[in-house]
């Protein structure tokens, strides 16, 4: 009903590193977004230290992957993931 062309806020997957134990469920559910580092912890494929370091703890989720991201949040054995928006 609103006329203002508000762009949909970008969905972000936030990683709480104090909880993450690198169990690997999120990296299986979101292989397009997440790889695993040499210790098993999720590593964002986009965003690098050279770019914006913040993108590695708050990973932008394309609309097509929102369902998989919601599954990852629900299934994370350490409850280390949250969906947020910018």
């Amino acid at each position: 009903m609103t006329n203002s062309p508000q762009p949909e806020p970008a969905a972000l997957l936030h990683i709480d590193w104090t909880r993450c134990d690198g169990r690997g469920l999120c990296t299986e559910l979101l292989p397009e977004l997440l790889a695993r580092d040499e210790w098993g912890y999720p590593l964002a494929r986009t965003g690098s230290a050279a770019g914006s370091a913040a993108e590695r703890s708050d990973i932008a989720i394309p609309p097509a992957l929102r369902g998989a991201a919601a599954d990852a949040v629900a299934l994370c054995p350490r409850q280390a993931l949250k969906l947020t928006s910018r």
């Binding site: 134990d21 690997g24 098993g40 054995p77």
Partner: peptide
Amino acid sequence: LTRSGRPLPGLPRFSITL
């Protein structure tokens, strides 16, 4: 098994949890 963080052959980790 799922607590170990390992998949099974043909069964990924999230499937084991499910």
